[in-house]
């Protein structure tokens, strides 16, 4: 599964080289952004609301028993912004947007559309990969901000209205404010930017190397999503390790 990492790094490098031409591709970037937002904003909110809620549900009663329920805001606040927000959103976007990227580029490869671009001297990296990578790198961190905010609210709702927990909004958010610093949120945003690049590069690369007909496209999509998610989880550990030094 990892034999293509070299090729992916080359693709990333070429895309970065094309970065100065992003302005010319701005229409395609905004099309992609619109598509990403359209496809995932609502789902991101629902997902985050419930994730925030479930951490509250899991940790709340235990903390109440030990008389330290005042820490709930901080616990939920940190876990959402440092870990769950970025990872959940990345997995969601890999499944929702990464798969679409692979399918679209893969079918263009299979049906010779990319060959046609080449014969017109249009670089497929500039034309196809660049706008997608830029769009996802802008969209994923933005979604994570949404997700973190909604997750905090989800946690708060459970903390306030669950009968076993029952702390006040004020207590929850004042603890959250005391514990969570700006750098914790920033930490999550850095992670999500890395995840966005992983999804973009893995899925575009897999699209470009698609072989065969519709079946090949199907295989490529599955492979791209699975590889993205595996890489995201591995990189998540490594990044967490590295970002700890910075704390």
């Amino acid at each position: 599964m990892f034999q293509n990492i070299g090729e992916m790094l080359v693709l990333l490098w070429r895309t970065l080289q094309a970065l100065p031409q992003t302005w010319r591709q701005r229409r395609k970037v905004s099309e992609q952004l619109f598509e990403i937002g359209n496809a995932s904003l609502l789902m991101a909110c629902i997902l985050s609301l419930f994730i925030g809620g479930v951490i509250a549900l899991q940790t709340g009663p235990v903390l109440v028993q030990r008389g330290i329920s005042s820490f709930l805001g901080g616990i939920i606040g940190l876990s959402m912004c440092k870990e769950l927000g970025p990872v959940m959103m990345a997995v969601l976007i890999a499944g929702r947007i990464g798969s679409a990227m692979t399918a679209e580029i893969g079918s263009m490869q299979v049906y010779q559309e990319i060959d046609a671009l080449r014969t017109m001297n249009i670089n497929p990296i500039r034309y196809l990969v660049l706008p997608r990578l830029v769009a996802i790198s802008l969209a994923l961190p933005t979604l994570v901000v949404f997700s973190v905010l909604v997750g905090w609210i989800g946690g708060a709702l459970v903390c306030v209205y669950n009968r076993q927990i029952g702390i006040s909004f004020e207590a929850y958010f004042s603890n959250l404010q005391n514990v969570v610093e700006f750098k914790d949120v920033f930490n999550g945003l850095i992670k999500s930017l890395v995840f966005a690049v992983i999804i973009g590069v893995v899925c575009c690369h897999q699209g470009l190397v698609t072989l065969g007909g519709p079946r090949g496209i199907g295989r490529s999509v599955t492979k791209a999503v699975v590889n993205s998610i595996v890489l995201i989880l591995i990189l998540d550990y490594l990044l967490t390790r590295v970002l700890l030094y910075w704390d």
Binding site: Y111, Q112, T119
Partner: peptide, 19 residues
């Protein structure tokens, strides 16, 4: 050379961009 010479190809399948 490929940049200087203008070439075009009409593919057997057309190969139009479907999007």
């Amino acid at each position: 050379v490929m940049d200087r010479v203008r070439m075009a190809m009409v593919f057997q399948s057309g190969a139009l961009l479907n999007s």
